[in-house]
Design a protein around this nucleic acid. Structure first.
Length: 400
DNA sequence: AGGTATTCACATGAAACTATTCTCTGAGTTAGG
DNA sequence: TAACTCAGAGAATAGTTTCATGTGAATACCTGT
């Protein structure tokens, strides 16, 4: 066989995609459907910035994939355009607080802000107030309005408390020339309730709620994206509907629907099909889920993987099991690959995290006289679980 | 039978510790004038 | 004397350990009938 033929198929079959980036999670469409009201509202609140006055702080709630981030980014982009055209000293900053090793601690968040202003700060070694000082100085170099967007702000406070938010809201008092206002975005609807009242009152001056999309709205969104992303008639009948239905099941998460559509396209393309069918979609659904789990696990520390490996070893006979049983298995595995065994306390936390990742299903039950524990079952499908086991075996270097 | 007290097997919280990575400082060393 | 080196003090962070306290309901143990 000629080497060339290996690739010929791919060349001949015209790509299903026109523009794949339209379906990527970072894409911001020109117009955002079903969010006019919210966009108007945000625009109204932020507009004083264009007159070099400080806008009120805004707080935005809504579940994942309801268009919060896209809307805000859209607004920021328009604001920036107008500002540069009219030479208005406006600076917009967007920071996602969830990104590990970027902005998930007080120090790193401020360091990231400094970077946005062109400064540079070492990743460690400095006292935090020193970092604050650098930040203040940098801010006050010139007269300007700063719009700081903190996405997934709830993650930040879970990890490090609300002190940092307090500092940020107070910052205006310290500044001579600049003014800063904050746009907070949270997935958690009750987030503000366990927040310091001082922070809460100053942060959530204006509140906005993004309701979930319903299936019909998601269909429209998908259609408009698909029109730009795919060649005409690349989609099978009913595909959009099925895709939307899947997302509606997940409380109207548009992002997942779009993601799913893209992966379905990729799956179809790889198999050389000229039309994306429901079967491709089903496969994509599995793949998305499995990829999510695997990337989540691979990036975890060894001990974490070790615990998961222990869990995966058990369920061949049993469906549900308890913390204690897992701990026993875990101990033998540690011995086998010469890890030092962690305490049960730690394992308990790791199990909780695995539950959060959706790899396992853990429910706290009371067995009465026989104590209280987690009732654990694996919540990933067989194929993924086998794949995962292989990956973990390699990573932990345990042979059977 | 009905009511209360125990008890198990962990869960959950807080604080403190460890190892690692990194900066900053200042003493000691070196090399050139 | 200026430049360089290098050890030591301090910080931040991730991952733990230690200690302390909490907890839901199946059982054991009473109680009075």
């Amino acid at each position: 066989m000629k080497v060339g033929t290996l690739f010929e198929n791919y060349l001949q079959a015209e790509s299903l995609f026109i523009d794949r980036s339209v379906l990527s999670s970072t894409f911001i469409p020109e117009e955002i459907t079903y969010r006019e009201e919210q966009l108007q509202e945000i625009a109204k609140i932020t507009s004083p910035a264009l007159r070099i006055e400080r806008p009120s702080n805004i707080f935005i709630y809504g579940k994942t994939g309801t268009g919060k981030t896209v809307s805000v980014k859209h607004i920021l982009r328009s604001l920036n355009e107008i500002a540069t055209k009219n030479k208005i000293p406006l600076k917009t900053i967007y920071i996602n607080c969830k990104l590990r090793r970027v902005a998930d601690t007080e120090y790193r968040l401020i360091a990231q802000l400094i970077k946005e202003f062109g400064g540079d700060i070492p990743p460690t070694g400095l006292p935090t107030d020193e970092v604050y000082n650098v930040f203040y100085k940098l801010l006050d170099q010139q007269k300007q309005i700063i719009l700081l967007t903190l996405d997934e702000i709830d993650q930040l406070t879970i990890k490090i408390g609300d002190e940092i938010l307090y500092n940020l809201t107070r910052i205006n008092a310290e500044l001579q020339k600049s003014q800063l206002s904050i746009i907070g975005i949270s997935n958690n609807l009750v987030f503000a309730e366990h927040l310091d009242p001082r922070v809460k009152s100053s942060l959530s001056v204006e509140e906005l709620i993004f309701p979930p999309y319903n299936a019909l709205q998601i269909q429209d969104i998908l259609r408009s994206r698909a029109k730009k992303a795919f060649r005409g008639n690349a989609l099978d009948q009913g595909l959009i509907e099925k895709c939307a239905a899947y997302a509606a099941r997940e409380h109207g998460d548009a992002r997942r629907a779009i993601d799913l559509l893209r992966v379905a396209g990729e799956v179809a393309e790889r198999s050389g099909a000229s039309v994306i069918t429901i079967a491709h979609l089903d496969e994509a659904e599995k793949k998305v889920e499995s990829d999510r789990v695997i990337t989540a696990i691979v990036n975890q520390p060894k001990q974490f993987q070790c615990v998961l490996y222990s869990i995966l070893l058990i369920p061949s006979q049993k469906k549900n099991f308890f913390t204690g049983e897992i701990y026993e298995v875990y101990k033998t595995i540690c011995k086998r690959c010469k890890f030092n065994t962690l305490t049960q306390r730690r394992i308990s936390d790791i199990l909780a995290e695995l539950d959060m990742l959706g790899v396992i299903n853990a429910k706290i039950i009371s067995k009465g006289r026989y104590g209280r524990t987690r009732d654990i079952s694996v919540s990933i499908d067989e194929t993924t679980s086998i794949k995962l086991r292989e990956i973990l075996e390699k990573s932990l270097q345990v042979g059977e």
